[in-house]
Write a protein that binds this DNA or RNA. Structure first.
Lengths: 154, 154
DNA sequence: GTCATACTACTCGGATAAGAACTGTCCGAGTGGGGTAGG
DNA sequence: CCTACCCCACTCGGACAGTTCTTATCCGAGTAGTATGAC
């Protein structure tokens, strides 16, 4: 799994803690975590394409969350960065086997594929059940100063 | 996730269906699925290093399962090929943040990391709960001729 | 006929390239604000 | 003083290299069986 997922998740949290009306530039987000700004910008573009954040060009521009943190799941962010395809994708190896058939879709028929798919669904479910708001609440419960400190250092 | 995982899983099934005393060479397994033999051999080596299969050199050599299919989980095979490290590994991005500390292990403290870890644990649990024997039983239930047909075509 | 020996064919095992994906960088298109000149 | 226009700095967006990981290939070490020749 790519490193950009971690960047995107933390950036989304910072965007959620930022001033509501204010857009945050990729440069400021990158400076916060000491990351390469241009590459972080690339990840944020992926979030924008997925409709998780909105982008504004020009002065006073930047990124902001497209909707409430309660409406953004961790799965949304991961999918936006990593892409929608499964980690395990069945190449239908059985199709070329002597016991196989050319007309069967082994992505659904193959029991190995089914088992791997079931595991990935469990993974997706866990990620889909947690929203950015959940993480924010947990962080603020542990460190109540986080929102203001984040705003101050952005 | 690498393609070798699929190869390894299906190869293990074929090894399980093969004649008990007989070793199967990488070449024969590769021919069965029409795969590059040398590269499949590499994956089988990984399985051997993980103790899932045993290898024998020379004529009449090859690979065979190191233990009963009931004692081999899908997670064992996946871990042998992909390695033991998690797909999402926390780079401790918070350490360099203004609000962060150098002395904290954010791989455990960061709530984002925890959430991702929880999801991966769910994924691992699903894979650990299914053994090769389970898959074999399900396949044989659907196509009872599979064991003999596999032996005949190996 | 039997045994020891050398040979050959076969298989794994690791070292070695080719390709793809991820990571990182750069410059251009568009935008909004501020300065400036005219009314 | 107010307004309209122009210029400029700023930001995103996509196109362009560097690096790491996956995929693929090749050749050597070791082994078991076999043929051969001596006893």
């Amino acid at each position: 799994m790519g490193e950009g997922v971690e960047w995107a998740l933390h950036s989304c949290l910072n965007l959620a803690w930022a001033e509501p009306g204010e857009a945050v530039t990729a440069t400021r987000l990158a400076a916060f975590f000491d990351l390469p700004a241009a590459y972080l910008n690339k990840q944020l573009q992926a979030l924008a394409r997925a409709g998780i954040v909105t982008s504004t060009s020009g002065p006073r521009g930047g990124f902001r969350l497209a909707r409430s943190p309660r409406e953004i799941t961790l799965l949304d962010v991961v999918t936006a960065i990593e892409g929608p395809q499964d980690a395990f994708r069945c190449r239908q190896i059985l199709r070329r086997a002597p016991t196989g058939s050319e007309t069967v879709d082994y992505r659904k028929a193959c029991l190995v594929s089914q088992a791997m798919r079931r595991a990935e669904l469990a993974w997706r479910r866990e990620l889909a059940e947690q929203t950015l708001a959940d993480i924010m609440a947990a962080v603020e419960s542990r460190s109540p100063r986080t929102p203001e400190r984040t705003r101050a250092n952005l």
